[in-house]
Design a protein around this nucleic acid. Structure first.
Length: 433
DNA sequence: ATCACGGTTTGCA
DNA sequence: CTAACGTGCAAACCGTGAT
């Protein structure tokens, strides 16, 4: 007889997550930042989106508006970086391809997280295997990761949480190697808000009903909780009990919508500035659209003032435009978006943000070609789009663009302290001192 | 009642 | 100097009008 193992572990799912990802990327290329308090700010240097442990210890919350913490930052010498997405994306790709070598079944869940199915490796010691993953990523990229292993994705997330928060696990935590009572003891020490799918809204509601720890929810009746919440809650409870309800998604499905929006560095009042920004966002979104070989059936444009400038008159509006036939052509999409902008624009406001969304996406292969339509896919325009995408890929972003995107962009987002693109741009690398 | 829809809310990284 | 608060997705949810 085997010693009683609760999780008659049919499956072994690992969640590998880079610690403080953006901050760790900056540290790889600037070792002086080690052991110092470092934050990385969101676009426009608006919020703190990545914090080193030192910064967390100083009490800066995730997503904190940075202007509220500038004094604290000065006091403690916190080093603040603007986000450098080109660098992070490249580092992410390196991490993901190393992880892929440890399992044929990988789901890239986000820029810094990957699920790996390790079920077929269970004859090995998975904690050792986790340590091997960890040292390989560290050696290959310089980035520190934590590994959580369990029988479902929801539990693997929690195991990863333990790997991070509890030094005794040495960055690798395997729930499957624990006994029932050991695991339940551990789950009883974790707050319900740490559970994947339980967030800002649901945690308080659950606590009101008397569920405070992960163990409380694990023991809850899934049917009854489903009435009070949703099918998601039911799945969460079953997953906490080791029943797989959320499968590994190895092939990333095509996007159903593509969104591009930015807040402005300085407010924009006239329609020209708005038009330029909208043109730029449509171009970015259309590139993504073509990369996944889809056509858009509708386009949504919106503009709004800043709700935080509460003394300013507020205005927010958007409109959805159904396209006469699905398209992936930048100039067509731009002219439609600009037409829409004209409809919703009102002078006299300080606009803080604009954006567009491409919706009703369909695969290019299955496009409805109406013989009598005047908007048939046009070979000339297709060749032009292909050429533009190729040039922009080879020569760098925005080598060629639509004239309507403009050039000066006084509204462009604020980025006061961006690090060089160490891995993707030779010119910037040469500037490093 | 039930459905399809569109807009809104929620959660997540 | 001052004022200053992200982005991009999916899915659930909810009100509404049509049937």
């Amino acid at each position: 007889m085997q010693p009683s193992k609760s999780n008659t572990a049919h499956r072994a799912i690992a969640l590998v997550d880079v610690n403080n990802f953006y901050v760790s990327c900056e540290r790889v290329f600037n070792p002086k930042l080690r052991n110092k308090p470092v934050v990385v700010l969101s676009n426009n240097d608006g919020c703190a989106v990545a914090r080193s442990n030192e910064v967390k210890a100083l009490g800066v919350p995730m997503g904190a508006p940075w202007f509220k913490f500038k004094d604290l930052a000065k006091q403690h010498g916190i080093i603040a970086y603007s986000s450098n997405y080109a660098l992070y994306a490249d580092m992410s790709n390196r991490v993901m391809s190393i992880l892929r070598q440890f399992s044929p079944d990988q789901e890239v869940y986000s820029i810094d997280e990957s699920f790996l199915d390790l079920t077929s490796f269970q004859r090995r010691d998975l904690v050792k295997y986790g340590q091997l993953i960890r040292s390989s990523v560290l050696k290959g990229t310089g980035l520190p990761v934590c590994v959580g292993i369990a029988s479902t994705k929801t539990l693997a997330k929690l195991a990863n949480h333990c790997a991070k928060k509890r030094p005794e696990y040495n960055s690798v935590c395997n729930f499957n190697s624990m006994s029932d009572s050991q695991l339940d003891q551990l789950l009883s020490e974790i707050d319900i808000g740490e559970i994947w799918g339980v967030g800002r809204k649901r945690a308080p509601k659950l606590k009101q009903l008397g569920f405070n720890t992960v163990l409380d929810l694990k023991r809850a009746n899934p049917e009854i909780l489903r009435q009070n919440f949703s099918v998601v809650m039911e799945k969460t409870i079953r997953e906490l009990n080791g029943i797989v309800c959320i499968e590994l998604e190895e092939v990333t499905p095509d996007k159903q919508q593509i969104l591009s929006s930015r807040s402005f560095g300085t407010p924009v009042t006239d329609i020209h500035g708005l038009s330029e920004s909208i043109s730029l966002y449509v171009s970015r979104a259309a590139e993504k659209l073509r990369r996944q070989q889809s056509y858009a059936g509708s386009l949504y444009v919106y503009i709004r003032t800043s709700p935080f400038r509460d003394k300013d008159p507020q205005y927010s509006n958007g409109m959805t435009i159904k396209l006469p036939s699905p398209t992936d052509s930048t100039p067509k999409l731009v002219s439609i978006a600009l037409w829409g902008l004209k409809q919703i624009y009102h002078p006299g406001y300080n606009y803080a943000k604009a954006g567009i969304m491409l919706g009703e996406l369909v695969p290019a292969s299955g496009i409805q070609t109406d013989l009598f339509s005047t908007m048939q896919p046009n070979p000339k325009s297709e060749r032009l789009m292909k050429a533009m995408d190729l040039i922009n890929r080879k020569m760098g972003k925005e080598s060629i663009k639509m004239a309507s995107e403009g050039f000066k962009h006084p509204w462009k987002m604020k980025q006061e302290n961006k690090s060089p693109c160490y891995t993707t741009n030779w010119d910037e690398l040469l500037k490093v001192d």
